[in-house]
Design a protein around this nucleic acid. Structure first.
Length: 332
DNA sequence: TTGTGTTTTATTGCCTCC
DNA sequence: GGAGGCAATAAAACACAA
């Protein structure tokens, strides 16, 4: 453990001086075959030999960072030892990698973001860095990469949420519209019945079949038919009937007061839609499924509470198979 | 020039794996 | 137990507005 906690940074001792010399000797002259392939050898003047140190400055022209690079400093050595001396005797300071070193590391990272020991050594040699510096660079680079991935995940989830929310809003509107329509038809029926004072019994039986929980006209005398017929047509009963449709076609949620939903089964997105259990179209099912995702700041549909399944209590529930798109990035 | 925010390099402590 | 990975963090380097 202690062996990897070595501080290798610049210092006033001679060892660091050796390091810097190594950096200036190795990197511009590198001819490491596997790593050369990472660079477009023709485009980088960095590998043209020792004279390319001048070219380095040329490449990094306008980059203030490179003005303080090892190479720039070393280049000045030709003009005198004073600057070099001053450079080597700087107090321990962080030194940023040159643009070329970073570019080299970036390309290597693109190839493989994990660093095997051999590759680390090779990279270190080619770049004139300490192996630990290479390791640290990769570690920090991976951290940055993960941060970026998180941002992407967040954006994807946000988009998904917005889409579901829009669907949910549309469903609510549609529901209101249908309710109004039912109300209108009910009123018409009432008026009609009051006008005639008579009813077709067969028609009544049809109604009862769709509402099995209500007393059936078969067991009711004809004189009571009108009453029976009208009962389910009250607003709340119609809603109840509507809920029955939901209940019979949707997964069941009641279990001794505990809300259970196949939709909540973590990691089992295949259970979300069960075509053979439903007569609804896929779109309708989609809408129904989506309607189970009340956002935190969102009111759950205010249809009859008793008949409408409660929203999932599982806080991990997102209503869509998140794992399919968002969390497959992590390789660690 | 200076204050401030961001990025990059490096350290520390903890965890996991072999 | 050593090696290596990670998160959290420090601190130097850098960018940029005022």
């Amino acid at each position: 453990m202690a062996s990897r906690r070595v501080v290798y940074g610049g210092g006033s001792n001679g060892s660091n001086m050796n390091t810097v010399l190594l950096q200036n000797q190795r990197f511009p002259c590198s001819s490491s075959e596997p790593l050369d392939s990472l660079f477009n050898s023709g485009s980088s003047p960095s590998f043209l030999g020792s004279r390319s140190m001048v070219s380095f400055e040329f490449v990094n022209k306008g980059n203030s960072r490179s003005d303080r690079s090892f190479f720039h400093s070393f280049e000045q050595e030709e003009n005198g030892d004073e600057d070099l001396e001053e450079y080597f005797h700087q107090p321990e300071k962080k030194r940023r990698l040159t643009a070329d070193q970073v570019q080299f590391l970036e390309r290597s990272f693109e190839v493989e973001n994990k660093l095997e020991p051999d590759r680390k050594i090779q990279l270190a040699k080619d770049l004139g860095l300490q192996p630990r510096q290479v390791a640290i660079w990769f570690q920090n680079r991976r951290a940055r990469w993960r941060t970026k991935q998180l941002e992407k995940d967040y954006e994807a989830l946000q988009a998904n949420y917005d889409s579901l929310k829009a669907d949910y809003d549309n469903l609510l509107k549609e529901e209101e519209k249908l309710k109004a329509e039912v109300l209108q038809l009910t009123d018409k029926l009432l008026v009609k019945e009051k006008g005639t004072g008579n009813l077709d019994l067969s028609e009544t039986n049809k109604q009862c079949k769709t509402l099995p929980q209500e007393p059936c006209a078969d067991s009711v005398s004809e004189g009571e038919v009108s009453k029976v017929m009208i009962m389910p047509c009250k607003q709340e009963d119609l809603s109840s009937a509507k809920s029955d449709v939901f209940d019979s076609e949707s997964p069941h949620y009641t279990d001794g007061g505990v809300n259970h939903s196949p939709l909540l089964e973590p990691g089992d997105s295949s259970y979300v839609f069960e075509p053979e259990q439903s007569d609804l179209s896929q779109d309708e099912e989609d809408n129904l499924s989506n309607s189970w995702l009340p956002p935190p700041s969102y009111g759950f549909p205010k249809i009859e509470d008793a008949d409408y399944p409660s929203p999932p209590t599982n806080s991990c529930y997102f209503g869509f198979p998140v794992e399919d798109q968002a969390f497959g990035f992590w390789s660690y």
